[in-house]
Design a protein around this nucleic acid. Sequence first.
DNA 1: TCTGGGGTCCTAGGACCC
DNA 2: TCTGGGGTCCTAGGACCC
Length: 421
Amino acid sequence: MPIFGLIDGNSFYCSCEAAFDPTLFGQAVVVLSNNDGCAIARSAGAKALGIKMGDPWHLVRSKRELCGVHWFSSNYPLYADLSRRIYQVLTDRVPRVEPYSIDEMFLDLTALPGNLFERCRQIRADVLRIAKIPTCLGWGPTKTIAKLANSIAKHEPGLLGLCDLTNPAVRAAYYARLPAAEVWGIGSRTAEKLERAGVTTIADFVAMDSKTLRDLLTVVGARIQAELLGVSCLPLSLMAPTRKGIAVTRSFGHPVTTWQELREAVAAYASRAGEKLRTEGLQACHMAVFLQTNPHKPDENWHSGQRAGRIEPTSDSMTLIREALRMLRPLWRGGHRYFKAGVILSDLVLARDQPAMLFAVTDPVKSAKIMTALDAVNARYGRGTLRPLATGIERTWSTRHDRLSPRYTTSLKEMLVATAW
DNA sequence: TCTGGGGTCCTAGGACCC
DNA sequence: TCTGGGGTCCTAGGACCC
């Protein structure tokens, strides 16, 4: 029988901030989304103060009792780097590791020698010692059970961050007690549907007959049930699957009312999408562009629009900007306060598999040279050092990050310096 | 003044094909 | 009274995840 483990960082983004600033340990810490919009990570201390996932920050910060909370703009280069360090610690100790998200990794614990519980305790201690991130680790015979074990480890302090669900009797006891909505893959809509059918606990869910379950939740529900019964349907995958789409969508730092600002922002998003394509050796054959006013302000004049279509396969920033602006032009209407826009690329193909276009608008040789040079300069001197003029100079529309911590691990200028006398 | 961003998978329905 | 059968591809929308 296989044994899957799932390890994840506790309040991961907050723990990353604390890893380089020990004064934050045990404090109320919050990390905000892009544009400093809402809370997306809260330390235990912040949760205890009642700060919820997704709370709009401009409402929270005005409360006097919360003025002592430490808050940060999100610093993805730092979080991504600490995630890589955790991965490194794990691959040194476990034969197979599948990164699932920036802060979660599935582990193959099937053939680990010695006492499994002791091994897991050690893995967790090593991640804390080397990568400085506290974690929880749960395990069981399928991925879905490992996810549940991890969630139990997180929520029951007595377990010290570890939970073993390999024993069916232990599982059954938890299934009887926990709501079906705790299961990975059962979201709020599905939970409501189940509730109406009289299914509330996980035990109720695994007891459903297959016909009823399929009628209600299709093959997706059937797969979740099998996994909970210990039949593994989701294997560990070590190869990152090729991406299906790339999206660059952002709220603006302030409402955008001019065509000049809007076109700069969308050009910048298209350019960033091109960078992402090139780092993965991909080209896009389809593009969509959208814009919208603020959906949270019903009294303002609402407008949204989207345009999409095929483009010649490319990863050239200039071509992507040209196409994006062509789609954007008819969408823009003066007199609106635009709030957000985005560029979404899909139908991605590997650049090296692409035959030369017979009537290409962009000269492929010249394009490749320019993009290679552009990427090389930016890799050396930082993203955005060299960029298309269309993406703007002042960038008055750009996203806010009022309290960004240093990129301690990915920028020489920002690393911590220790001085000894 | 201020409410995130980026993904995946599944299904249903329409258009089209032989 | 009777009006085939079996495909593919595309898109939009819903649901889920972190």
